[in-house]
Amino acid sequence: MKIIGLFIIAYLLGSIPTGLWIGKRFYHTNLREHGSGNTGTTNTFRILGFKAGVTTLSIDILKGTLATLLPVWLGVTEVSPLLIGFLAILGHTFPIFAHFKGGKAVATSAGVLLGFAPLYLLFLLLIFGLTLYLYSMISLSSIIAAIVGILTVLTFPACHFILKSYDPLFTIIIIIMGSFIIYRHKDNIHRIRSKSENLVPFGLNLSKQIKK
């Protein structure tokens, strides 16, 4: 029963539609009606500004971290914290509090890694930051970080770099998370190919997207 309770709590934590609620409560703005229509961090930054964006990012990360650490704090050893964290990712993507239409799983996935494998998260953040500087696109940075995550979770344990050994469950969940992030960015991939993706106001924009 305790494990089932943790699954439910994690899913409900993930289901909190942070950007959507912040927009409606403090800015009288429905994010679904502006920008990309997404309720995640990127669209929150773009539509509501820096303060709302940082708040949304922090809470969405925290959702994943709290869910992952809950079984550790409660002394539950019968199930991996990763599985509990994964329920938060599902909640974030398919939130019961927002008609099952949520974000793209990037921030909450980062939160899960922060609670379970912080050094590996730091490595992926470096990849994300470098890609963002070179191409000025949060979407592409998320996609590249997801691809690198899938590749390195398969290769790093072989050379004992950051990931010291193979963990089948960790490997499977990283592959699922990464694949899901890539799939959720399918519209962004189309815009990148057509040179019409949204840009951040810094970086080199090496792919020469047309600035809006």
Rank of each mutant, 00 (worst) to 15 (best):
L12R: 01
L12V: 15
L12E: 00
L12Q: 00
L13T: 01
L13S: 01
L13D: 00
L13Q: 01
G14N: 03
G14P: 07
G14Y: 03
G14C: 08
G14H: 02
S15T: 06
S15N: 08
S15E: 04
S15I: 03
I16A: 01
I16W: 04
I16S: 03
I16K: 01
P17R: 05
P17G: 05
P17M: 06
T18L: 00
T18R: 08
T18M: 03
G19C: 04
L20D: 09
L20Q: 13
L20Y: 15
L20W: 14
L20P: 04
W21Y: 11
W21E: 05
W21Q: 05
W21V: 15
W21C: 00
I22C: 04
I22V: 13
I22L: 11
I22R: 10
G23I: 01
G23L: 01
G23Y: 10
G23E: 09
G23D: 07
G23R: 12
K24G: 02
K24W: 02
R25N: 10
R25Y: 11
R25W: 14
R25M: 11
R25Q: 09
F26H: 08
H28F: 09
T29W: 00
T29M: 09
T29R: 08
T29I: 14
T29F: 00
T29V: 14
N30P: 10
N30A: 07
L31Q: 13
L31Y: 12
L31I: 03
L31S: 12
L31K: 14
R32D: 07
R32N: 15
R32K: 15
E33F: 03
E33N: 14
E33S: 14
H34C: 11
H34E: 14
H34D: 03
G35P: 13
G35F: 09
G35V: 05
S36G: 13
S36L: 06
S36N: 12
S36E: 13
S36Y: 06
G37L: 10
G37N: 15
N38D: 13
N38L: 11
N38F: 00
N38S: 14
N38K: 12
T39Q: 11
T39N: 11
T39V: 15
G40Q: 05
G40N: 02
G40A: 09
G40Y: 09
G40W: 08
T41S: 12
T41W: 00
T41D: 02
T42V: 15
T42I: 14
T42G: 04
T42L: 11
T42D: 09
N43G: 10
T44W: 06
T44H: 03
T44L: 02
T44G: 07
F45W: 08
F45D: 05
F45Q: 03
F45A: 08
R46C: 07
R46N: 09
R46L: 12
R46I: 10
R46S: 12
R46D: 08
I47T: 13
I47P: 12
I47W: 04
I47E: 14
I47F: 06
I47L: 06
L48C: 02
L48K: 12
L48W: 12
L48R: 03
L48I: 02
